[in-house]
Design a protein around this nucleic acid. Structure first.
Lengths: 211, 211
DNA sequence: CGCTTCTTTGAACGCTTTCAACCAGTGTGG
DNA sequence: CCACACTGGTTGAAAGCGTTCAAAGAAGCG
C-alpha cells in the first residue's frame, strides 16, 4: 500500500488530465504544480517542498501538471486504500483538512501577490517565502543575516510570480544593486538583513503571515 | 449552538485579526473575503455565495476581511461545539474537506487568471465563473443565451481580478461593443452566446473546469 | 433638486513585456 | 584539446497594456 517513487530533475510526475491512482507526500526535493492556457502561458499554482501533499482523495484525474525540479522522492499510497484509511482513522482526515486549509491560506496570500504586488515586491516576497519555508524545515526562525538556495530557475520563478523571466532577472539585479540581497552564483542568495527584505515585500513589517 | 445572523449590504462580517468565535455558511446573499496591503491595495481572495463556508475550525482569529456585498443571511455555529461535532461525526469533517479542496481548486484557477490572463480575458472569465455558479445554484447547465446579475460593483470586480475599476469598465464596454455581452442597466448582463464568452476567457474551449 | 455613489470615458504616463543580442558554464564530438 | 552547441541567465531598446489622473454622465435618495 505504501511505496516510494523518485524522479529526476525536470521529469514529470503527473500530467493534467492523466489518471492518477496514488496520493503521496514529498520526502525530499522540490516539485511544482502548474496550469497552462491553450497558448502556452503557464502559471505555477503550487510549490511542493518536503512534507507537502500531492494528489486529491476521491479524484482519479490529475487537475494540474506536477514536475520535479530537483531530484524528488515521493512517499506514495495507492488511492483506494488511502481513502479507506481516511474513513477509518479520523486523525488522518483531520490532518489532511488542516494541511488543505493551510494550503488554501497560502494560495490566498499568493493571490494577493499575483494581483496587487509590483515586480520588485513579488521577487522580495518570493525570497522571503522560500526563506521562511526553509527556516521552518530546519526548525529555525528567519531573521538577521541568512542564506538560501533557490530551488527554481528564473523561468520557474517567473511562472510562480506571474512575470516574465527577463523581469525576474532584472528585479533580482536591482535588489542586488540596492544591497537588499547578495548573489552566490546564480542559485544561492544571501540576505544581509532579512527585515529589510521583508520591508521590500509590500507586506506589513511584522511579516503579516498566517497565524 | 446554531443561530442565524444577517448583514446589510456593505456591512463588515469580520475583520482580519479580529476574534471570531463562530463558523458559518451563507444561506442567502453574497459576501467577499479580501486582503489588504499596508498602503490600501486590496485583493479579493474569496467570493462567498449561498452554501459557501466562512471561518476556519481551530482558528479563532480571522485571517481575512469578510464583507457583505448584498443583504446576507449566515447560518452560524459556535466554533467550539462545531469542532466537537467534527470529531464525533466524520461525515461533517469529510464534507468540509471536500469543500476546502474545491475552494483550493478554485483558488488555483483564480491564480492562473491573476497571473497570466489579459484584462479582457479576466473579465470574460469572471462573467463565465459567475454564470456557472449561478447556473449551478439553480441546477441548470450554462450555455446558449443566458442572463446573470452581477453581485459586485465595478470596484469589487477590480479587486477580484487584480485590475483597476477603470480597466474593468473599459473592458466591459469593449466586450459590449464586440457583441460578446449585452448590458441591462449596470448590474445585469446577457450573453447572446455563452460559448463565445468562454472563447474570450482564454480557457480551453470545453470550459476547462475542475472535473 | 441637490447630494452621493457608481460608472464611463479621455489622455498621458509608466511598468512590464517583447524581441534581440550577448555572456557564462557545461557537455560533446572531432 | 578545442570548436561547437545547448541551457540558463543577463542586459538593452522599443512597444504595449493597464494604470493614473481628471472630468463628466447616470442613477438612487434625502
Amino acid at each position: 500500500m505504501k511505496f516510494y517513487r523518485s524522479f529526476e530533475p525536470g521529469q514529470p510526475i503527473v500530467w493534467e488530465g492523466e489518471r492518477m491512482d496514488f496520493v503521496g507526500s514529498v520526502v525530499t526535493g522540490v516539485a511544482t504544480l502548474t496550469q497552462m492556457l491553450d497558448d502556452g502561458r503557464t502559471q505555477m499554482v503550487g510549490l511542493l517542498l518536503p512534507s507537502d501533499f500531492l494528489g486529491r482523495p476521491n479524484r482519479d484525474i490529475a487537475a494540474y501538471n506536477a514536475v520535479a525540479t530537483t531530484r524528488v522522492v515521493l512517499c506514495c499510497f495507492r488511492r483506494k486504500p488511502f481513502e479507506a484509511l481516511m474513513c477509518t482513522t479520523p486523525q488522518v482526515a483531520h490532518r489532511l483538512l488542516e494541511m488543505t486549509l493551510d494550503e488554501l491560506d497560502a494560495a490566498r496570500e499568493w493571490m494577493l501577490l499575483l494581483g496587487r504586488k509590483t515586480a520588485r515586491e513579488k521577487i522580495a516576497s518570493f525570497l522571503a517565502i522560500i526563506a521562511r519555508r526553509e527556516a521552518a524545515l530546519h526548525k529555525r526562525d528567519p531573521g538577521g543575516r541568512m542564506r538560501i538556495d533557490l530551488p527554481l530557475t528564473r523561468e520557474a520563478m517567473a511562472d510562480y510570480l506571474g512575470l516574465t523571466l527577463e523581469t525576474v532577472s532584472r528585479q533580482i539585479s536591482a535588489l542586488k544593486r540596492d544591497g537588499v540581497i547578495e548573489l552566490v552564483g546564480k542559485r544561492a542568495v544571501i540576505f544581509p538583513d532579512f527585515a529589510r527584505l521583508v520591508g521590500e515585500s509590500g507586506n506589513d513589517a511584522d511579516g503579516g503571515y498566517p497565524r
